[in-house]
Simulated assay, not measured.
Amino acid sequence: MVLSHANVLACAESITEAIALGSADAHASWLPLFHDMGLFGTLTGLFTGIAVNLWNPTAFVKDPGRWLAEFAATRSTITTMPNFAFDALLDTPLQDLDLSAWRVCFNGAEIIRPESVTAFSARFVRSGFRAEAMTPGYGMAEATLVATLPPLGRAPVVESVDREALARGELVPGSKEVVGLGRAVPGMEVRIADGPVGEIQLRGAAVTTGYLRGPQPFTDDGWLRTGDLGWLRAGELFFAGRAKEMITVRGVNTYPADVEAEVAAVPGVRRGRCVALSRLDPHEHIAVVAETALPDAEHDALRDAIAARVRRALGLSALTVHLTTPDSLPRTTSGKLRRLATAALIERSP
């Protein structure tokens, strides 16, 4: 993938304008600098000349609560994290924790769970965290970093749709909650192909000129094909899932995030860490891999509880459940769970 100097500057300028970045701000991050969200978020801070505080990623992984206390002590105003990090911070002690300086809290790089957003805001309101600081957005490396952000100072919005209709590409009111990801940032355009639910496509100064090798990710009229599915409501982007990750079993489409949300809510699944994917061997079914710290003697009961919840909530019976030890699910450098690598983990298991 090619990212030019102009792409990077355009991205930094759009972020600066979107969040009114100024001299009173300070950026803080534990994300690795070889990942787009860590690198370009940090560069934006450097380009504007504000204070930038960086931690080694292991500082967060080893002790999320200690990192949050150190972050609060810096009085930083801006940081960026994937959704799983907000869940990991929920056990942080509140004593002497002052988060009142935190005005922009970017949440991105993976599916944003409404329950994570709500729980984090509720947990830390007593420490001065404001709900409107939570800033869920959409982006990708091919757009340098960010494509959409909500209006500055607005608390996250949630739309409720029918999950089965959504899997068919239809928008019908229902019980599945999806977090709004805002509108196109300055210099970026967003459209949905073949809507109302369809591929998210981008165009703008921060978008890559293409890949060094292989097929190019553009439409005939020059829009970047993201491979992501979503919809627009009054200009607000909502993310449905990755097209290539859609699970189809017995002719029925299911988003893996829907399965994972149900599994994550089962007591015994460690910090909601689980992956759902399609399997064809020995028959067409959905496989769930979940982390747990429970002793082996309780594994059968946990598998039964997971299967029962998924069957009850989603009507899916063609399901197998695999349990693994804490922190064993493969992740990307930004902490996102890797589905293909998880599939290989299943194949290696006895």
Rank of each mutant, 00 (worst) to 15 (best):
F124V: 09
A343P: 01
V178R: 12
T324I: 03
Y211S: 06
L46A: 10
G128L: 13
A276H: 05
A307L: 09
M1R: 05
V178H: 13
W30D: 02
G272V: 09
R113W: 14
R250Q: 15
E115F: 09
E70V: 00
V157W: 04
N83D: 15
Y255C: 00
L314P: 01
A313E: 15
A301H: 07
Y255R: 09
G38P: 03
A234N: 15
T333I: 04
L345T: 07
P136I: 05
A59L: 09
I346L: 14
D221T: 06
M81H: 10
V52S: 07
A133C: 13
R311N: 10
S317C: 08
A265V: 06
Q201C: 11
V252W: 07
L89D: 02
L237C: 09
T77K: 10
D220I: 00
Y138I: 05
D96L: 04
S29A: 11
R154S: 12
L337E: 00
E291Q: 06
P57A: 14
T248Q: 10
E236K: 04
E260V: 07
G65D: 09
R66E: 15
A26P: 00
A28D: 07
F120T: 00
D327H: 11
P256D: 08
F238G: 03
R312A: 13
I111E: 11
V321P: 04
D194L: 09
A234R: 13
I78P: 01
T325P: 06
T80P: 04
H299F: 05
L294T: 03
D36C: 11
L21M: 07
A293P: 02
G169S: 10
D194R: 10
A308P: 04
V269A: 02
T16V: 04
G210I: 04
P196F: 11
M37A: 15
P93E: 15
P114W: 14
G49Q: 12
A12N: 06
A26W: 10
A51E: 15
G182W: 05
E291F: 02
A341N: 12
V269H: 03
A10L: 05
L323V: 03
A261G: 08
A12R: 01
A193T: 05
W223A: 01
K336Y: 04
A243E: 15
V117D: 01
Q216S: 09
G41Y: 07
R242K: 09
L90K: 12
V178W: 14
S121T: 14
G214E: 09
T80Q: 06
P93N: 14
H5M: 10
T324P: 00
L277G: 02
M37T: 04
A69S: 15
G315E: 10
D36V: 11
E170K: 10
A122I: 01
F40E: 03
S175F: 08
A243S: 15
Q201V: 04
M246V: 12
T325D: 10
R331A: 07
P114A: 13
